[in-house]
Design a protein around this nucleic acid. Structure first.
Length: 752
DNA sequence: CAATTGGGTTTTTTT
DNA sequence: AACCCAATTG
């Protein structure tokens, strides 16, 4: 037997060796999916003789692409594989569109707008159309446009479909698209939509790409959207050599347009599909697997598969409770210290998961306090920082001086006296003459329309820009940046007060950006700066290449595809996880998706899983409120926990909203009283509150009243405020701290 | 024109 | 608490 197949189980081997025709691999968590994919590509190449250049593999993230490439290299014993086409749908489409720019109605040097740029552009459009942001929320508009593009709908299509909405989304969409076209820019969704339209409208071009890629593989297929589904079909329907890999239980991107039905109904779109299920788990202990299976079995949207393992029972799960975020951080940090120092665990093998980035705060504080090295994965993205965005826009403008969006962003950065008024004149002029901002600005300086500082500054800026454009034609990206930094004096004038901490961190980021562009290794032979900018737009991951072992902090979404020996999942509270939006919507599918997210979190752990609940989170508007436990906690069989955890759970679960039915094996609990509100108020001698849904203010609180806070100690009321039902009190504590509370939630009592 | 202040709003998740 | 916008002030 080929050495390639030696380390695979029989089912995996089938998946690797299946040759022609559509193949669907349902890969359960930890079932060796990546191993199968990489071996399959290696097999196609080495054993079947398919040239690597004829294989296209689509991954969900750039990181996954990089990893896949490396692993295949290792298997094949090659240093590099320039021919193999691996990347996200977005990256592949960007490549295709650059090659086929003309046919797609673009110029080769088109810019790619990230989400932030897109929002800025939308805001500009709203201003131009004189629509208030209150009426048309930029975020809503953005989502409308993206949803439309995913379904390949033009503004005109939207106009026809929807007319009952009072917000003129289609009109905004139309104008937005106009702006993008004028700026020679595309957004993320355009990358997909324009490629699909190109293939649909030009059979010759489509054939060319189909012939180029004889074998197509799509990973994380459960998270593809409609446009991606169409793309898959357009690329593979001729030869049918399509292999998709997915797991319906790990579909967690419906909010981005992902449709599980793409996976569930794959056989319909590709008749004759061979289906393989990978169900043996090689990752987690039997206990963790049992916890995961019990949870996911509640879902209805499943193909259905049963994971099994030949591994050991392993350690039970631990459930932790804390009064607040700081306490939660401390407990987890202490446990990390114990694992690292006593058990000798490598910090790289520990991860802390949460539902949203804002939850990382308390953990970060504790990690610093305990001097545990950590890294936050994702989070505020590097390229989203103001200074990095500025520099990126300056670079974009140098490649493509008609990019009005970039021009607008940087024409007055650093401040050179071209303020809102002057910019408005430029914009109007540009619109009237039907030219770009840059050309309009040139005309304005010639006509001497602007007076004073603005006039001179603009001439100066335009002069510098000409220099950068010239430079960008041939020079290395780092050289262009160097010139830009020098000309604009950005490091002195662009970072604010030079002695501030902020300026320090900005300069640090600029330094890091310089490092990135310096060490950038171009792949192709085309315009290097353009290539750099494309990568920056599509790949947000900033990789610090120090190899220091660290504990990882990341969202569960970010954790997809990763695994760790020890996993902590924090924020196991109602309203947090599952998010209140899902639980409060009347969409059962929304909760199912949250449950899949929980399933993903559980199945990342190899050896041990910790779940953490905090009674309160730092949200001033809800200070003192007591969180109810997450419904997911009650969906776990109690005997997967250790004894103490079971006790903690028993004490806590009475606070949970009653559930009608309980499946056997679940924790039993007796609610000692009904709970009416989502946030459960504390009882206190201030009087009964929040009866039967109606909220009355608590008597006895007025200015000067002596009070006692359950956690913060004694103090005095300094002021009262808020709306009826949401009365607030500001308390000055005896130790000098001041804090405002929502009266009905605060654990405050009147002092004797 | 720009910096400051005040008010209102927000909290998923990412290519 | 943090962020973003609009209005006000220097």
């Amino acid at each position: 037997m080929s050495e390639l197949l030696a380390h695979l189980n029989p089912v995996q081997r089938q998946a690797v060796t299946h040759l022609d025709g559509p193949l669907m691999i349902i890969a359960g968590a930890g079932s060796g999916k990546t191993r199968v994919i990489t071996h399959r590509i290696a097999f196609l190449h080495r054993e079947v003789g398919i040239p690597l250049g004829q294989i296209m593999a689509v991954t969900f993230t750039n990181k996954a692409a990089k990893e896949m490439r490396e692993r295949i290299c290792r298997i094949l014993g090659l240093p590099d594989m320039p021919g193999l086409a691996v990347g996200t749908f977005h990256a592949r489409c960007a490549m295709i569109l650059r090659r086929e720019a003309e046919a797609a109605g673009l110029s080769t040097s088109f810019a790619i707008l990230d989400e932030t740029d897109q929002k800025q552009a939308i805001k500009g459009v709203l201003k131009e159309l004189d629509i208030s942001e209150k009426l048309a929320r930029p975020a809503k508009v953005q989502s409308f446009i993206n949803q439309a593009k995913m379904r390949l709908l033009t503004p005109a299509d939207c106009e026809e479909l929807n007319d009952e909405d009072e917000v003129p989304y289609p009109r905004i969409y139309a104008k937005y698209q106009e702006v993008l076209t004028k700026c020679n820019s595309v957004d993320f969704e355009d990358l997909l939509m324009k490629t699909v339209l190109l293939f649909q409208g030009n059979e010759a071009i489509r054939k060319r790409w189909v012939e180029r890629y004889q074998y197509v593989l799509v990973d994380e297929y459960q998270d593809t959207n409609h446009a991606q589904f169409l793309l898959t079909k357009l690329l593979a329907k001729d030869h049918g050599n399509i292999c998709i890999v997915g797991d319906e239980d790990q579909s967690i991107y419906s909010w981005r347009g992902a449709e599980i039905s793409n996976l569930l109904e794959f056989e319909k779109s590709f008749p004759g599909t061979h289906v393989i299920k990978l169900e043996q788990n090689y990752r987690s202990t039997a206990t963790i697997l049992r916890a995961a299976s019990t949870v996911i079995e509640r879902n209805t949207q499943r193909i259905g598969k049963t994971l099994f393992t030949e591994g050991e029972e392993g350690e039970p799960l631990t459930f932790m409770t804390s009064p607040d975020q700081a306490g939660e951080g401390t407990r987890i940090a202490q446990e990390c210290v114990r694992l690292i120092k006593v058990e000798g665990v490598n910090p790289d093998e520990i991860a802390i998961f949460y539902r949203g980035h804002w939850l990382s705060r308390g953990i970060e504080d504790a990690m610093r306090q305990f001097r545990i090295p950590y890294r936050v994965v994702g989070g505020l993205r590097f390229y989203d920082r103001r200074e990095v965005k500025d520099l990126l826009s300056l670079l974009r403008l140098s490649v493509n001086p008609t990019d009005d969006l970039a021009f607008e962003r940087v024409v007055n950065v650093p401040n050179r006296g071209i303020g809102a008024k002057s910019q408005l004149i430029i914009a109007q002029h540009a619109a009237a003459m039907g030219v770009s901002w840059r050309e309009a600005a040139i005309a304005l300086t010639e006509q001497k329309t602007l007076r004073g500082k603005a006039h001179g500054s603009l001439i100066n800026f335009l002069g510098m820009l000409d220099g950068w454009v010239e430079l960008a034609r041939f020079a290395k990206p780092s050289r262009v940046l160097e010139q830009i930094l020098k000309d604009t004096n950005y490091k002195e004038d662009g970072v604010g007060d030079l002695n501030s901490i902020e300026a320090e961190s900005r300069l640090e980021n600029i330094g890091e950006f310089e490092g990135m562009i310096d060490s950038y290794q171009p792949q192709g032979t085309e315009n290097q700066l353009l290539e750099f900018l494309t990568e920056m737009a599509l790949d947000a991951t900033e990789e610090k290449d120090d190899n220091k072992a660290r504990v990882s902090l990341l969202t569960i979404h970010n954790a997809k595809g990763l695994e760790y020996d020890y996993v902590f999942t924090i924020g196991m509270e109602k309203g947090v996880f599952p998010t209140s939006r899902a639980e409060e919507s009347f969409d059962a599918m929304a909760v199912e998706e949250e449950r899949r997210l929980f399933y993903v979190a559980i199945t990342r752990a190899r050896k041990k899983l910790f779940l953490s609940y905090s009674m309160s989170r730092n949200r001033p508007d809800l200070w003192g409120s007591m969180n109810q436990p997450s419904i997911f906690l009650s969906e776990l069989p109690s005997d997967v926990f250790d004894g103490e955890s079971q006790q903690r759970m028993k004490r806590l679960l009475p606070y949970q909203t009653q559930r009608q039915k309980q499946a056997p094996g679940e924790l039993e609990y007796v609610p000692d009283e009904p709970v009416q509100t989502e946030r459960r108020p504390f009882r206190s001698p201030g009087g009964p509150i929040n009866r039967g849904g109606r909220t009355a203010s608590r008597p006895g609180f007025s200015e000067g009243t002596r009070v006692n806070h359950r956690y913060m100690g004694p103090g005095e009321v300094v002021s009262l405020g808020g709306r009826p039902g949401w009365e607030r009190v500001k308390v000055r504590f005896d130790d000098g701290r001041e804090q405002e509370f929502v009266l009905k939630y605060a654990p405050l009592s009147l002092a004797e």
